[in-house]
Design a protein around this nucleic acid. Structure first.
Lengths: 115, 115
DNA sequence: TCATTATATAAGCATATACTTATATAAAAA
DNA sequence: TTTTTATATAAGTATATGCTTATATAATGA
């Protein structure tokens, strides 16, 4: 079981504001159990690539996600080392599981895997 | 123990956006263990009365808080019947306890009590 | 009834936000 | 080495947000 980290009001509200957007909350839900790259988010969320990249940048700047380049692709994952991770994990238990969307992506042959 | 309610992405992001503001998050933290009236928030948060009332209206419109008039005063409390309550309760465990601020208010003779 | 107190609402405004389009960069492939 | 693919960034813009000031409403008390 994860430890319950207490954040300052300032830090907590910053995290919650970032989660308080449908696009970013879905991104975080997708990252709960998976690594994903930008083009997968673009496909699943049906949004422009710059729009997705700009959301990811906000999440990265705040330390909520990590990025790792693998060839052409930049893979994003939750930053489990960040103080916000405990709060985020609990929040994500209150939204619908997003795995189905990745399964559908896989079935349509658009899932990216570099392992 | 409270049941873990799952909200839609849309509903969850709306709740998180409302919590993603320092003023509103502090208000919710104060309401975690107490009923409070508008003038108490004004005093504790050192903000104008209209600013506080506008934040409370957003929280009320979204169903996160309830209001009850007692004489001159309008008392606000968490809406425990709302679907968002389970999420909100967990979020509030990740911020510092706000009770000290109410104790200080009481000691300065400015706490309102109608019971 | 009229004044006072607590709160709500309306209008205005400066800033923040989330897109868009255009362009830059970085890795791989031809 | 040039092209292609994936991503990042910059600039512009429409809308949302959170305050301000001014005013309205609602309950109490003189």
């Amino acid at each position: 079981m994860l430890e319950k980290t207490v954040l300052s009001i300032k830090d907590a509200s910053q995290v919650l504001k970032l989660l308080g957007d449908q696009t970013r909350l879905t991104i975080m839900g997708l990252l709960k159990n998976n690594e994903c790259c930008v083009c997968e988010f673009v496909e699943i969320l049906d949004m422009s690539q710059p729009a997705i990249s700009q959301h990811l940048r906000k999440l990265r700047d705040a330390g909520l996600v990590k990025e790792q380049r693998k060839g052409h692709w930049m893979f994003y994952s939750l930053n489990q080392e960040d103080d916000s991770f405990s709060l985020i994990s609990e929040v994500l238990e209150h939204i619908p599981d997003q795995r189905e969307k990745l399964i559908q992506l896989e079935q349509s042959g658009k899932r990216i895997c570099c392992d």
